Amino acid sequence: MTDAIPTVGLGLRWEDTPEGFRFRTIGRSITDADITSFVGVTGMLEVLFTNLEYLRSESLFAGRRLVPGALIYSLAEGLLMQTVVQGTGLAFLSMELKMEGPTFSGDTIHVDCEVLEARATQKPGRGIVKTLNKVINQKGEVVMTYTPIRLVKGRDYVAPGEARGAQI
């Protein structure tokens, strides 16, 4: 039996994101602990991320602790998961990504997202959504842009194994 109370925090179906639809995520500050955890779990033990003395003497950024681009992307995707993708994404198909500027420990980022394309696929209940995602820091500077293409559930999506038209 389905509960009458709706679940909040679920994503949007592809039909609910027409071309030109725009939104902004909440912000998230990036900490030294985030960087340390990320480089440790991924093995990205680059001195730019792990050696503060190297940053002071060799870095182009006067000793400021850089955030790996892969972490910025991961955090941006996390912000999107919390808003429009949760429970509606079926597959991540591809993307183009460009670093626009540095991000440092202590920066706060959010994502401005614009739908570039939203269309049905040949299979019922599925759509392709392409967006332009701009990761922006607290100064209003774009630090990363990327254009993911996702396979997303439609309003008439039926999970494999479920009968079409079944009543719940």
Rank of each mutant, 00 (worst) to 15 (best):
D3Y: 01
P6S: 07
T7V: 15
T7M: 14
V8G: 06
V8E: 13
G9A: 12
G11E: 12
G11I: 06
L12C: 03
W14F: 15
D16A: 12
T17K: 04
R22Q: 13
R22G: 01
F23C: 11
T25Y: 07
I26S: 10
I26H: 07
S29P: 14
S29M: 15
I30V: 11
T31W: 07
D32E: 15
D34N: 12
F38S: 07
F38T: 09
V39Q: 02
V39D: 08
G40E: 10
V41W: 00
V41G: 00
V41A: 08
T42E: 05
M44C: 11
M44V: 08
L45S: 05
L45G: 09
E46A: 09
E46H: 15
V47P: 15
F49K: 02
T50N: 05
N51Q: 12
N51G: 08
L52Q: 13
E53D: 15
S57D: 11
S59T: 03
F61I: 11
A62D: 15
G63E: 01
G69A: 10
G69Y: 04
A70S: 09
A70K: 03
A70I: 05
I72N: 08
Y73T: 11
Y73F: 14
Y73W: 12
S74D: 06
A76W: 07
E77P: 02
L80Q: 06
V84C: 02
T88W: 06
G89W: 10
A91Y: 01
F92S: 10
F92P: 11
L93P: 02
L93V: 15
L93C: 07
S94T: 05
M95S: 14
M95P: 04
E96K: 14
K98A: 04
M99W: 06
M99Q: 04
M99N: 05
M99D: 01
E100L: 07
P102V: 03
D107Y: 09
I109K: 02
I109Q: 04
D112E: 15
D112K: 01
E114P: 09
E114R: 08
L116N: 04
E117R: 10
A120T: 10
T121Y: 03
P124D: 12
G125W: 02
R126F: 01
I128S: 00
T131E: 09
N133R: 12
V135A: 05
N137S: 01
G140Y: 05
V143K: 04
V143F: 00
M144F: 05
T145Q: 03
T145L: 07
T147F: 08
T147R: 13
P148T: 06
P148A: 00
K153M: 14
K153E: 11
R155D: 07
D156F: 08
V158G: 01
P160E: 00
A163F: 01
G165Q: 11
Q167C: 09
